[in-house]
């Protein structure tokens, strides 16, 4: 029982990180109609930017967090303008393959600058807090939960209340109509990259806080990210949040029955089952 609750609690933390990454992945798919395979490595980039500001430049964590998100968004826009923009009129498979290339470039760039070894934001051990019923969490994990909830609420408000957020949803509904309506689609695409990059950078930083930084940290999470996106209904940011939590908790709970090494397989299995049973996902409209 204690173990069960402990695993659910760990799963929620992992789910938070996956959810943050999936929201952007889903939004980008909805608007640009391609699966961004570089999303995981953008997550890594965000984590290393925070390492740069926090550890290498000695800034406070909150400042490093914000600056890293901003810098990741900046890189995303640059990559979009240089690479994706010229590919936009081609088939979406070309964009997808392009993103695989960008994923490789980002990962190797990170390895070149910061090396292949693991890094940490903080040295030292955190004493876990006992939550009752024998469940223990690290203070950092509470921080992860709070930051995720705050960011998800902000993303929600952005999508629901701002003109740009509404235009993103409109473009995700119908790109041609958005153009005819007079929506400046290129401007909206830039903002979509900003939102996606900010959230995925946050996910990377939170993952770094929970465990450690390594050049392949985001790439390793790409499968769960896609699984969460597809589970929630590809193109639906709200589905992605839900999908992230489900994947996170299922991965952790699976260790009750199968060896932990197979955790990513669980995400893959859920993704396959969802595609077989309800390809539109939990909250999706159509694929």
């Amino acid at each position: 029982m204690v173990l069960l609750l402990q695993l659910i609690s760990n799963g929620i933390i992992l789910g938070c990180i996956i959810a943050l990454g999936s929201i952007g992945l889903s939004l980008l798919y909805g608007i640009l109609k391609f699966g961004n395979f570089a999303h995981g490595d953008m997550m890594t980039l965000g984590a290393y930017f925070a390492f740069l500001f926090k550890v290498q430049l000695g800034m406070p964590m909150w400042a490093a967090f914000v600056l890293a998100m901003a810098l990741t968004a900046f890189v995303a826009i640059i990559v979009d303008q240089i690479i994706y923009k010229s590919l936009r009129k081609s088939d979406s498979i070309i964009l997808l393959i392009g993103s695989v290339g960008i994923a490789l470039i980002l990962r190797n760039f990170i390895q070149l600058i910061w090396g292949p070894q693991n890094h940490f934001y903080d040295k030292g051990i955190q004493m876990p807090i006992k939550l009752g019923l024998g469940v223990r969490v690290k203070p950092n994990q509470i921080l992860i939960l709070v930051v995720t909830v705050a960011l998800v609420i902000l993303a929600h408000l952005f999508l629901r209340k701002t003109k740009m957020g509404k235009a993103m949803r409109a473009m995700s509904d119908n790109m041609d109509l958005a153009k005819v309506t007079g929506i400046n689609t290129e401007q909206v695409i830039k903002w979509t990259w900003v939102l996606g990059a900010v959230l995925t950078a946050a996910a990377g930083i939170l993952l770094g806080i929970d465990t450690h930084l390594s050049p392949s940290m985001g790439w390793n999470l790409l499968l769960p990210l896609f699984a969460a996106t597809i589970l929630g209904g590809i193109g639906s940011p709200y589905g992605a949040m839900l999908g992230g939590l489900v994947i996170g908790v299922s991965q952790e709970l699976s260790t009750l029955i199968i060896p932990p090494t197979y955790k990513p397989g669980v995400a893959f299995l859920i993704m396959l089952l969802m595609l077989l049973i309800k390809p539109t996902g939990l909250m999706g409209r159509s694929v």
Binding site: K163, K166, A167, A170, L177, A178, R285
Partner: peptide
């Protein structure tokens, strides 16, 4: 835009 409300559709105009 099917997922936007009536009012949001007008706003997009």
């Amino acid at each position: 835009f099917p997922s936007l409300t009536v009012h949001e559709n007008l706003e997009m105009g």
